[in-house]
Design a protein around this nucleic acid. Structure first.
Lengths: 81, 81
DNA sequence: ATGCATTTGTCCGTATGTATG
DNA sequence: TCATACATACGGACAAATGCA
């Protein structure tokens, strides 16, 4: 899963933004290839040590940016292109 | 199936703990014999009037306690001994 | 070998209640 | 008062294992 990032819930950066940025970095560096599936949201929550709700906010951001595509019941995928 | 218990979703007791406790009671009283199969999880959900997710949490607890054993595709069974 | 029903497993979608700052 | 964050709870869709005809 790559390195466990430091998520600072006390700092100025919002937690869900930190999670979104970390995932975005992995996508942009190609660590997560286009078309590949991300770990389940609840797994991401456990990995980052944050709540499900927080991961939802993060993936919501990335969806808006067009970086990922989510399919109900299947998973979340790195967008093609 | 025994008596329909009161599940209080507004009280201080978590719903999945209430479900787990009720099932545990039935097992400990011998109403559910060792080796016997429990109703399907989704049936339990309907019986208790709770969500599948909640029954999953409850059975997860009972598995941790060693009270039940679950086999994918077959069912959930009262542990021997 | 194939298909089907049953049952558990996995996942996302949404809502609610509480706590914190 | 409000946004963030967390945990629980409910719902829906899809997938995998098992057993049997």
């Amino acid at each position: 899963m790559s390195e466990r990032p430091e998520i600072d819930s006390s700092g100025p950066q919002l937690v869900y933004v930190q999670v979104a940025d970390h995932l975005a970095g992995r996508i942009e560096r190609g660590e997560l290839a286009p078309g590949s599936r991300l770990p389940p949201e609840r797994e991401l929550a456990a990995f980052y040590g944050v709540a499900y709700d927080t991961v939802r906010r993060a993936t919501s951001l990335l969806r808006e940016r067009g970086l990922i595509v989510t399919v109900h019941g299947r998973g979340t995928f790195v967008a093609e292109r």
